[in-house]
Amino acid sequence: MMNNRSTSGSIFAVIIGIAAIGFGILEFVGGEWGPLTVEAGTFTAWRAVILICAGLIYLSSVSNFMDIRQLAKSVVASIMIWIVAAMDIWAMIAASIPSGAEEAGEPWFASGTEFLAAYGPPYMPAIYLLIPSLVILYFVGKRRLAK
């Protein structure tokens, strides 16, 4: 019975777990694939490690998913993804504001189109993981209601 309650959660954990590991490996490799990009930087390797670990933690929460300890593991993995994604988004925001010009007379702030263009694709892997990882909130809410 316990397992029945957990089925949908387990499926979620398997899928996002494998996806996170896959994206983590892409972070290691680096490159650009259509709307997906990995910008090399000082922390690329660390981002890869974080995503892969998050994936493994998701996978370790598959059995008996709705048990509080198992569910909490998935929450921790999701928070890890949120941190990486939030920092990717924060980097986009920081890059979108100043114009980058240095001479007197040039504008200080990016123009409207430049500003918006900064938020267009391609995106970093964690941003693609962000939306599916938010599904964890549904399971947390479901458990709270069940109590």
Binding site: F43, W46, R47, V49, I50, C53, A54, I57, V76, I79, M80, I83, V84, A86, M87, W90, A91, A94, I97, P98
Partner: peptide
């Protein structure tokens, strides 16, 4: 792993903020 994620967030936020 969670601590690594937190410290990564700590450092990246700082770097981007100061850079901006």
């Amino acid at each position: 792993p969670f601590a690594i994620a937190v410290l990564y967030g700590f450092w990246t936020f700082f770097g981007e903020f100061a850079g901006l």
